[in-house]
Amino acid sequence: MTVLHFLSCVGITYAPIYIAYKSTRIGEFKSFSPVLFGAAGYFVTQLAKMMLLATFLPSFDTSIYSVYQEVIRLFNGVVDLFAIFVLLHLSHAPKDVRALGIGLGWALADALPRVYSLWGAMPLEFDSMHLINSFESNVATLHSVAICYVVASLTRKQKKSGNNSNNSGSNMLTDFLSILRTPSMALLSLIIYLTVPLVHSYLNLVVGANAFVLLAVNIAMVLANSLLIVSGPLKSELASSSSPTMARQ
């Protein structure tokens, strides 16, 4: 039974990513390079954040709630968004698979370290925390892919407005900051994306909510944001990708 519990947790965690890959245009085109590109970008981003935090910021206790730590979490989210922006800007994958491929790669890289924690599903007694962690991985996958579409939509609009810059880091940072200053439904989605970990931390450390409540709130926020994205940025992004001319950009 312990082996079945472990396999079920692994399946819940990684099967949705595989299904999304095989059932979409990435699988049809056998285009795995954007997935690898997104995964590599995730690991580089996390390494850069760890080095930055270890060098310039003091250590802090994640078991207590403080405004300082929440600012750090917010900063981490902004860095992730900038990394996704850079990956979309540098990727040479076809436009109609670029955002999805990078989003799946980002989600896969985020889920890979969970293998170690899932190994804890092998003890003699059943622990629901492993199933909860697996479902949280699914929620994170959905949010990562959706946010990649949002950033891709904002990037496309920026290029249409004639603000397309070269690949230098300073220009890309300027372009990224400019899209954050543009009021839109997509910007609201990015704000919700940055808010999710802050709400999770508050409920966990201040309210003392249990794991099931945290998962329910996480699912509710991500689904609400995903519906917002589907009705706005995703619709426009898919519409632009349907054009053969645009798809080759």
Rank of each mutant, 00 (worst) to 15 (best):
1 M>K: 09
47 L>K: 04
175 D>G: 12
228 L>I: 04
172 M>D: 08
67 V>H: 13
147 I>S: 00
229 I>F: 07
169 G>P: 00
60 F>T: 06
90 L>P: 03
161 S>M: 11
193 Y>M: 11
205 L>Q: 01
62 T>V: 15
66 S>W: 12
72 I>N: 00
166 N>T: 10
43 F>S: 01
145 V>L: 05
209 A>F: 06
102 I>A: 01
236 S>G: 09
168 S>H: 08
199 V>F: 03
54 A>Y: 10
178 S>A: 14
85 F>C: 07
220 A>V: 13
162 G>K: 07
38 G>C: 05
37 F>D: 02
213 V>C: 08
247 A>S: 10
176 F>T: 06
124 L>R: 03
58 P>I: 06
98 R>H: 12
210 N>E: 12
95 K>Y: 13
26 I>K: 00
204 N>R: 11
42 Y>S: 11
237 E>A: 14
235 K>D: 08
248 R>C: 14
43 F>A: 02
13 T>S: 02
94 P>I: 02
98 R>V: 07
134 S>D: 03
206 V>P: 05
220 A>R: 04
69 Q>D: 12
61 D>N: 15
22 K>R: 15
199 V>N: 04
106 W>K: 10
50 M>Y: 06
52 L>E: 00
16 P>T: 03
86 V>D: 04
3 V>L: 12
36 L>T: 05
213 V>F: 07
187 L>F: 10
43 F>G: 00
53 L>R: 05
81 L>H: 09
20 A>L: 15
78 V>N: 10
13 T>R: 01
146 A>K: 04
33 S>T: 12
32 F>C: 09
173 L>M: 14
98 R>L: 11
197 P>H: 09
30 K>M: 13
198 L>D: 02
193 Y>N: 12
12 I>D: 02
178 S>T: 13
214 L>P: 01
94 P>M: 06
44 V>G: 02
112 L>F: 06
72 I>T: 02
49 K>Q: 03
204 N>K: 11
200 H>Q: 10
120 G>L: 04
155 T>N: 10
86 V>C: 10
240 S>R: 10
95 K>D: 13
